[in-house]
């Protein structure tokens, strides 16, 4: 890649104020002494200016009162039962809670099975345990049954409510 190509790739971030220090200075001094790159800078500035004008003139000024009335109507509207149920499930059966509920249920089943196998007064060395590790935002619940040599590893992510849909949006397309 020629020096001019490298500089022209950096023109956008430089004009956006995202290139600071030595990187920004390298672009500035090259553009000051190179007619081709100065012309490329001019074209990019014109593009940005036109974009700004087109996007802002397309958008009419909203009247707040009717806008808010519609938002308020939606807030106050009684939602159908299935939507309420979905919302209740989403808030009650959230991933972190489910992540604990599932191993706990498995442990319960194992416990019940061991009771069924060894009635009261039988062997007592059959047990299960649950551990949790939190590393790199991933939680791990570990469940061991020493008698049957069974280990269940339960991995789960802990998404915050405010990050909802972000991963989905990020997955929806290529990087460029």
């Amino acid at each position: 890649m020629s020096p001019c190509e490298t500089i022209q790739e950096s023109l956008g971030p430089w004009l956006d104020g995202e290139l600071r220090g030595a990187d920004g200075e390298a672009v500035r001094s090259h553009v000051a002494s190179c007619a081709d790159c100065a012309a490329a800078r001019g074209r990019l500035e014109k593009l940005q200016l036109t974009l700004g004008t087109v996007l802002s003139t397309e958008a009419p000024q909203l009247k707040f009162a009717p806008f808010w009335r519609e938002v308020e109507r939606r807030i106050e509207a009684k939602r159908p039962w299935h939507e309420q149920l979905i919302e209740w499930c989403q808030s009650t059966l959230s991933a972190p809670r489910l992540a604990w509920a599932v191993p706990a249920a498995i442990m319960l089943v194992l416990g019940l099975l061991s009771f069924a196998k060894w009635p009261v007064g039988g062997q007592a060395d059959n047990y299960a345990s649950v551990e949790s590790i939190d590393a790199h935002g991933r939680n791990v619940a570990l469940l061991r049954d020493d008698k049957t040599k069974t280990t269940i590893i339960w991995l789960y992510q802990n998404p915050e409510g405010e990050n909802e849909n972000v991963e989905e949006a990020a997955k929806s397309g290529p990087a460029f």
Binding site: E9, G12, D16, E18, L51, L55, A175, F176
Partner: peptide, 29 residues
């Protein structure tokens, strides 16, 4: 263009890195 947002804020909104924002802007322009 409308908000003059930093690449960091755009990345936070779109759930991608600043590098991805830079690359997408370059190709879009």
């Amino acid at each position: 263009t409308i908000e003059g947002m930093s690449y960091k804020d755009i990345g936070e909104i779109l759930g991608c890195s600043e590098g991805t924002v830079m690359s997408r802007l370059h190709y879009a322009r």
